[in-house]
Nucleic acid binder design. Structure first.
Length: 380
RNA sequence: GGUAGGUUACCCAAGUGGCCAACGGGGAUUGACUGUAAAUCAAUUGGGCUCUGCCCUUCGAUGGUUCGAAUCCAUCACCUACCA
């Protein structure tokens, strides 16, 4: 299979990579963070905002969009890009994670997963055939295979079963993508490595997917409640088993410092609801750690969240004003703080790319992480 | 001047003899948030401590009844409505 991924360089001191991925809607420079837009919107932002903070690619969600408004409707209206007014690349998650997050409404069967809609209780079924049809309807630039994402902790038998099932489903998804001309048309399909906390199962899962030859590979089954060291360990022992000439995507992660640590482990792509969700809850990121703008100490703080950071929020507004908006329940707070947090993440990735090119990624990253985790922001 | 009702913690507001430092809201303070059922959720909100409990001070003010009062009685202050 022709690769649309170009590995520009690999760091000498770490396993970090600088890459470039071509999609139907544009080229993505990696490492990259992808803002999450589950329901055909990155909550609180317009596509214009996303452009302004230099978002390269965003996420959508198969499960949610198929439930509402329905993928047939989206297809009828010209596909997800036109529907939501975003002409950049879109990656759609398959809904496998919803098996985990909506566990009470789930029944994992051999050829797919039976869900009960969290909206109205209607029965819904997602298998390889369904998720591929939905993602084709949506017109995803990068589709994800459907996988089984077991909770943490889980037994070795459960993890092994999830790996086997996920591998089988991955093969079926890939066959559909090939047979329908989806891949030839320039769309991508990523396989997902499961295996929970069992390194050998993850190696086995990676090998199995590698045989199938995917355009890209994701590390799944993380950010499901496990402690951070465990999460980093699993990412670290999965990445080396993935082909170097394909993009690697750690699903659902992470904090700013976690991102840098995972870049050093050889991961190229990330997505996480954290920056957008916590923004709406008043938490914002700074180079000195996160701060909770709701805190009384920011009541009269005239400074921007991050002095000198080049985004609309930091250019125009004080912490005192942003705190006021949030405390008063004004919806503009969600917009401005989301702009800041996502830009902070995207800017961090841009810095990482620059330092990879400059050859000083390791030292820069170590210093950045040290400053961030020292938590000077909280000690002011 | 008369009659009736009212005065509870930052605000609103339950509670009419012991299970009351006092329900419930709001506000405030703090925390959580990792492939989004989240503009959500949780804790705290009289003071002190040797803090899964104990002590002190509080329900307009003062005095009283009672083993025991936010709850009953008396007087006073203020608020509201109606009558003069």
């Amino acid at each position: 299979m022709p690769s649309h991924f170009e590995l520009l360089l690999t760091d000498t001191a770490t396993a970090a990579r600088r890459g470039r991925l071509r999609t139907r809607h544009g080229t993505i420079e990696t490492p990259i963070f992808m803002p999450v837009g589950t329901q055909a919107t990155v909550k609180a932002l317009t596509p214009a905002h996303l452009r302004e903070i230099h978002a390269q690619i965003i996420l959508g969600n198969t499960y949610h969009l198929n439930l509402r408004p329905g993928s047939d409707l989206v297809a009828k209206l010209g596909g997800l890009h036109r529907f939501m007014g975003w002409d950049g690349p879109i990656l759609t998650d398959s809904g496998g994670f919803q098996v985990f997050s909506l566990a009470k409404l789930r029944d994992v069967q051999e050829d797919g997963i039976a869900f009960q809609s969290h909206l109205d209780g209607a029965n819904l079924f997602l298998g390889p055939r369904e998720v591929m049809r939905i993602q084709q309807n949506l017109g995803s630039d990068i589709a994800m295979v459907i996988d089984e994402c077991p909770p943490w902790p889980c037994t070795r038998d459960e993890a092994a079963a999830a790996v086997a099932r996920s591998r089988r489903w991955a093969g079926q998804c890939l066959a559909i993508a090939r047979d329908t001309g989806w891949l030839d048309a320039g769309h991508h399909l990523f396989g997902i490595v499961q295996g929970s906390t069992f390194a050998d199962l993850r190696a086995e899962a990676a090998a199995g997917l590698r045989e199938l030859d995917f355009p890209g590979y994701a590390i799944g089954g993380v950010s499901v409640g496990e402690p951070e060291p465990e999460m980093l360990h699993q990412v670290g022992c999965t990445a080396p088993h993935l082909p170097t000439d394909r993009p690697r995507y750690a699903m659902g992660l992470g904090t700013p410092s976690q991102l840098l640590k995972m870049i050093a482990l050889g991961v190229d792509m990330f997505d996480c609801v954290m920056p957008s969700r916590v923004a709406r809850n008043g938490l914002v990121f700074t180079p000195d750690g996160p701060i909770n703008l709701r805190n009384e100490k920011f009541r009269e703080d005239p400074r921007p969240i991050v002095d000198g950071l080049d985004n609309y929020c930091c250019h125009h507004f004080s912490r005192a004003y942003l705190r006021h908006l949030h405390v008063a329940g004004e919806m503009l707070a969600g917009t401005l703080l989301t702009i800041h947090n996502l830009h902070f993440y995207l800017d961090l990735m841009a810095q990482a790319r620059a330092h990879l090119e400059a050859g000083d990624f390791a030292s820069w990253s170590a210093a950045w992480i040290k400053r961030y985790e020292t938590g000077a922001a909280e000690k002011e």
